[in-house]
Nucleic acid binder design. Structure first.
Lengths: 133, 133
DNA sequence: GGCGTTTCTGTTATGTTATAACGTTACAGT
DNA sequence: ACTGTAACGTTATAACATAACAGAAACGCC
């Protein structure tokens, strides 16, 4: 049965990669339900949990959405830049930001764990496509 | 009518300050419904939106919750350290982290807007209260 | 092989978070 | 007073996420 689980994870990852943009769990559900109509949210969330654990997928906390990872370095050192116009997301490796963040928290005796670093704004191509009404 | 809106915002802020911990919109709703049983989610969300805009309240993206701001400096330069054990949240002013974050995003032509910087882990007092089962 | 244990999976149901849609009320400008 | 605009109240529903439990697979042990 772990075969089926692996299958599901790879299906989810495939769809995320095809899209190459943030998708909600329910977007994925709808997509995959064309093959398996009875597919349930739980199944998607379980697959996503594993994929995030593995670092294959980012969870975008400020969007409640998920995205296939395409960055080089360690997935937990990346910064996600989210375009509020077109929805595109850039991944940037930013080790120093993450280190600083951990350091600052540590100063008050806090034991650092998972970090969330995201930035909203407008991507380069949307800035060029400026509206000139 | 704007009197009522202001009233609502101050009620919401009062409850958040009393609690001094993250609360979901629905926590607030339940709390305030003891006075106004017909109160609706929308009303809470609108009040929260304004309060966040003003900088009186933080939105914790990774918890889908809200918290009264008690930090000194500019609210949009703070780092939120969230204890996964006790739920307490520390606010730290961290201008340099935010600046670096904006810089990194800018490098690819991204126009920086709202930043989300949160860190999960264990707070000092929970680290001390270590379980020694 | 048979048996118990553990882990993973599918399924149903429900809980939680957030917003759409629309009519109403306040208020500023004229 | 009239009108446009922004804020508000209200109802309904959409979107996101998990609890709970039953059944199947995997594994060790006898």
């Amino acid at each position: 049965m772990s075969k089926q689980g692996e299958q599901m994870r790879s299906n989810v990852l495939r769809v995320l990669r095809q899209r190459d943009a943030p998708m909600s769990a329910y977007d994925l559900l709808r997509e995959l339900q064309s093959d398996a109509p009875r597919l349930a949210p739980t199944t998607i969330y379980r697959a996503l949990e594993k994929l995030v654990e593995r670092g294959s997928v980012h969870r975008l906390e400020s969007l409640n959405a998920f995205m296939a990872c395409r960055c080089e370095g360690p997935v937990d050192m990346s910064v996600l830049a989210i375009c509020d116009d077109c929805g595109a997301v850039e991944e940037n490796l930013a080790t120093s930001v993450h280190e600083q963040l951990s350091n600052i928290a540590s100063q008050s005796g806090f034991e650092p764990g998972r970090r969330v670093v995201e930035i909203h704004g407008r991507c380069a191509s949307c800035t060029v496509d400026e509206v000139h009404s």
